[in-house]
């Protein structure tokens, strides 16, 4: 396959960026999108040019490190992560636009790499449970009803990649935050911090400069793990419940 790539190049956080055009040849349709970028980078290095910086780690679709907005879609045209996107999803001779996640809470570090530490601070605000450390507890010590377990698992699938923020026209982190809140708030292990968790995490989300939800549904469409849009409804419900309870105290 022969492809034309238009890639966002930006020297550093303060520099002005722009799209640069590259031609790549000899791409196999069995390559992943990241392997295709590796090919481009090898050529750039041989030519003595600066390779394109992009985030990646496990390349198995489970770590949430890879990002990239490909032809206007977060993680590209398939419902998966960029590392699991294969070149067979494109045609020979295609022009492909590659851009970083766009949100003021995710500033560009270099080229296609953005700083997603705002997500870490949202997690630090309440995305944890208080549990004694040590040996794993007996699995049946705390019974969890099957529907609750399924609900928690569905939301626990979030890998924190930030595709929801990238896809949202408001740069909102509602789907990410709601996935974490719903995952923990439904479980008995998460019950002691149920109210403070949702209030603190939503407050931190606002603090980080993410936008608000206008229910366009773009986040859920982009999510490689299929976190449903209704997750946000669940977070709103938890937030209203916690606010009412806080008001009574």
């Amino acid at each position: 396959m022969k492809l034309t790539l238009r890639v966002w190049r930006q020297k550093n956080a303060d520099a002005e960026g722009a799209m640069s055009t590259y031609e790549v040849d000899g791409i196999s349709k069995d390559m992943s999108f990241l392997e295709m970028l590796d090919t481009l980078n090898e050529e750039l290095i041989l030519k003595g040019e600066d390779p394109v910086a992009f985030d990646h780690d496990c390349r198995e679709g489970i770590c949430g490190a890879c990002s990239l907005v490909i032809n206007g879609d977060a993680h590209g045209p398939e419902r998966t992560t960029t590392c699991q996107l294969h070149m067979r999803s494109f045609q020979d001779g295609d022009t492909i636009d590659v851009e970083p996640w766009r949100a003021s809470a995710f500033p560009v570090v270099k080229d296609l790499v953005v700083d997603r530490s705002a997500f870490d601070r949202i997690i630090q605000a309440g995305g944890y449970i208080t549990a004694p450390t040590g040996a794993a507890p007996e699995a049946h010590a705390t019974p969890v009803p099957r529907p609750d377990a399924d609900f928690a698992f569905e939301h626990a699938e979030c890998i924190g990649c930030g595709a929801c923020v990238a896809a949202c026209p408001n740069g909102a982190a509602m789907l990410f935050t709601s996935a974490k809140i719903n995952h923990l708030n439904v479980l008995p292990q998460g019950a002691p911090e149920r109210e403070s968790r949702v209030l603190d995490m939503v407050a931190q989300m606002d603090e980080e400069g993410f936008g608000g939800c206008t229910l366009t549904g773009e986040c859920a469409t982009a999510c490689p793990k299929g976190i449903p849009l209704m997750s946000i409804t669940g977070m709103n419900k938890e937030w209203l419940r916690a606010t009412r309870k806080a008001g009574k105290k």
Binding site: W8, A105, P169, G171, G211
Partner: peptide, 21 residues
């Protein structure tokens, strides 16, 4: 707040969401 949270647009634009939205 929403406009401030997404200051730079994508170069590759796509028609998105329903007309009502």
């Amino acid at each position: 707040r929403d406009i401030k949270a997404r200051p730079s647009k994508y170069v590759h634009k796509k028609p998105r969401t329903s007309y009502a939205t």
